[in-house]
């Protein structure tokens, strides 16, 4: 099935080829597309969830731009995953923190591996890396 089969596609620049402002903008929709292809939810489910997230963002007064749109897409994706797979949804926050630790513990320029962040450590002292 070609990627466009699920009908999930990015916002684009008005002219020329697509330029994602942030890499995660591309990834959030690519993941949504992959889950739709895998059957976790349908195109209609995705459209409904994204539409609802966009309405919430509008109601909250968010600017009508890419940042608001992709934040809504992420919220919609997280919501659908949690709804369809409570196990995956329930593991997400822990996984976010594990990746955060992995990034902070990995020296700049080295590949970041999840294994580096799996063990919690209150003595994370790598704050200096943020400014490196």
């Amino acid at each position: 099935m070609p990627p466009e089969a699920t009908g999930i596609a990015p916002r684009a620049s008005d002219e020329g080829p697509v330029r994602f402002a942030e890499p995660w903008h591309a990834q959030v929709l690519a993941i949504a597309n992959g889950l739709a292809e895998a059957g976790l939810f349908s195109r209609s489910d995705w459209a409904a969830a994204l539409g609802a997230a966009l309405r919430r963002a509008e109601a909250a007064g968010g600017p009508d731009d890419d940042a608001t749109y992709y934040a809504a897409a992420l919220a919609a994706l997280e919501g659908l995953v949690a709804e369809r797979s409570p196990e995956a949804g329930g593991s997400l926050e822990g996984r976010v923190e594990a990746w955060r630790r992995a990034y902070l513990r990995t020296p700049h320029g080295k590949p970041v591996e999840l294994s580096a962040g799996l063990e919690a450590d209150d003595a994370d002292e790598d704050v200096s890396l943020r400014g490196a």
Binding site: E22, P23, W24, Q27, V28, I31, G34, L35, Y70, A71, L74, L77, E78, V81, A88, S91, L92, R95, V96, A98, W99, R100, Y103, L104, H108, G109, P111, V112, L114, L129, R130, A132
Partner: peptide, 19 residues
């Protein structure tokens, strides 16, 4: 891979690896 990503990017990364 270059630095600690912004929060939404971190969440996307976590979600993808988990799935």
């Amino acid at each position: 891979h270059s630095h600690l990503p912004p929060e939404p990017a971190l969440r996307v990364k976590a979600l993808e690896s988990l799935l």
